[in-house]
Write a protein that binds this DNA or RNA. Structure first.
Lengths: 293, 293
DNA sequence: TAATAACCATCGGTTTTGGTGATATGTATA
DNA sequence: TATACATATCACCAAAACCGATGGTTATTA
């Protein structure tokens, strides 16, 4: 029966076009490679290389089998690197809980880098409301999370400020509030506000309810779509709002009482006193500068 | 360095939950497996099994590495079966050229069975017009083909009748011809016919042009769509026509001169005097009964 | 044309490895 | 407590892989 070393000889020889070169690369003598390949050919009962020319060249059969051999070696590399990763105590799985407003391009870029660094560690991304993110961390359903600050959540989690995100009040361009130049609190009252709310019914503490009626979503893109339909006004993350404003689907509202744009503080959350493996530590570090530019 | 036999012991032991059982299955003694696994654990520098209980059970690390090991063994099976397929002279690639009207569910079913039978043989399907199918076979761009009979193609290919397909004349329900109860050749003349035509400009010899104006497609689904748009009338394969008639998008036309429905003869084509490998022979045989029910 | 340098196949001798069988130990079950 | 079944360990053996030397072949260069 053939073995992995012979398969390695096979692909190396195919790459280098020479038994001796392959031997040098693999730290063996030429005759070992010569015999190894010969044995492989006996096992497969196929000739892999044509030796009639100066340099051994792949036969059609060899070409066809080569891709299979390469696949095996690739899998083997993954097995090795997985074993090594485990030697470095890298986690098998990291569960991320993220407020859906924070699924920024930068966030995905961090995950892409993570993949390259820790290919043996799986990732689970759950996007939800900030309140649910905090609950997921607290109940050990997630290892690390990104949330907006929630003032009334004083439980046992480890928080760290990492930046902020602008929110704009917006409504449909034809909405009656869109025409008003200095919207007062009284103006807002009779209208409908589209708001975020967690699965447990918690409303974000940083964004006030200013209208008497409200519709609730658990994600901001739904809020964006509803507002675009003219169903009400909403505070939307700047990047979503601007996208719609550019397209002419939404208009920024002018409040008489908001002198500065709303900035929601963003925190990274972890379980208190829980050890971090190398992968989680790396992620924790990288996410700190998620909001930097 | 670990080897394939050890990986096999690993997955077998994990499956059976016992070193001895694994040894029995692999035809070795128990101590061989015990040592093999122990050596694997040394190589990986990870403990794979927990021996504290009665039956060795996978550690978390073992579970994680098991899937990698299984992947390698699967790849190995594929390598083996590819090598064996080559020993049986099975082809690396079979190129099919098929008139696009003949891409019937049955056709795909045959390919699905082919895949199970000849997993090491790749398939290339080119769908085009019958005339181009014949040309592809003749010029060795395809190994086997399915076409409608083309009376003016008398070149060096091997043909065999395998059945026939009904064609209906159809037009949009609002089309003026849709209302006529006994359409004569004269009625058709002023209208537009949607027709199939090959890349070289050849028109199918079995389906006549009956109208003065024509639009041309190289595939029948395009003809179906154009006809559904009311752009003209067309002869369509029964299965396409009926689909649209059911949906109310097309209507079958009543010709005074077509007393029976048009039946186009279908042939299987191969290059003359060219040897068939086992895979091609199988396919040739299966496709013979493509039109049977 | 001769010399040189690379390359590959083959073969005897040595080392390594995987496998065997015996034995000791441990653990459920009756 | 006896039994049946599992696993770890060890000494030993045979097959395999490997090494180094040799000879034949083919390009390249002087």
């Amino acid at each position: 029966m053939y073995n992995l070393e012979q398969l390695r000889m096979f692909v190396e020889t195919a790459n280098l076009g020479s038994f001796s070169a392959c031997a040098r690369k693999l730290g063996k003598v030429q005759s070992a490679v010569s015999q190894g390949i010969a044995n492989l050919e006996i096992d497969f009962d196929r000739q892999l290389f044509d030796r009639s020319t100066r340099k051994p060249s792949l036969t059609p059969d060899g070409t066809r089998l080569l891709s299979y051999a390469q696949a095996i070696l690739l899998q083997m590399d993954e097995l090795d690197s997985a074993a090594q990763a485990m030697g470095r105590q890298e986690e098998a799985l990291i569960r991320l809980a993220v407020d859906n407003a924070l699924l920024l391009p930068n966030f995905y870029a961090v995950l892409a880098r993570f993949e390259r660094q820790f290919s043996a560690t799986d990732i689970e991304v759950v996007s939800t409301t900030s309140f649910d993110v905090l609950e997921a961390i607290e109940s050990d359903q997630a290892d690390i999370g990104l949330t907006f600050v929630e003032f009334d959540f004083n439980r046992d989690v480890e928080l760290g400020y990492i930046g902020s995100l602008n929110f704009y009040p917006v409504c449909h361009p034809q909405h009656s509030l869109a025409q008003v130049n200095e919207i007062t609190a009284g103006d807002l009252l009779p209208h409908r506000q589209v708001m975020s709310r967690s699965s447990k019914g918690s409303v974000p503490t940083q964004l006030p309810q200013l209208s008497s009626k409200a519709w609730f979503c658990n994600n901001y893109t739904a809020m964006q779509s509803l507002t675009e339909q003219g169903i009400g006004w909403a505070y939307l993350p700047a990047y979503l709002a601007e996208e719609s404003i550019q397209a002419g689907n939404l208009k920024k509202m002018k409040f008489s009482f908001d002198h500065k744009t709303w900035k929601l503080s963003i925190e990274m959350v972890r379980q208190k006193n829980k050890a971090m493996g190398p992968a989680l530590a790396w992620l924790h570090d990288e996410l700190k500068s998620l909001l930097d530019e």
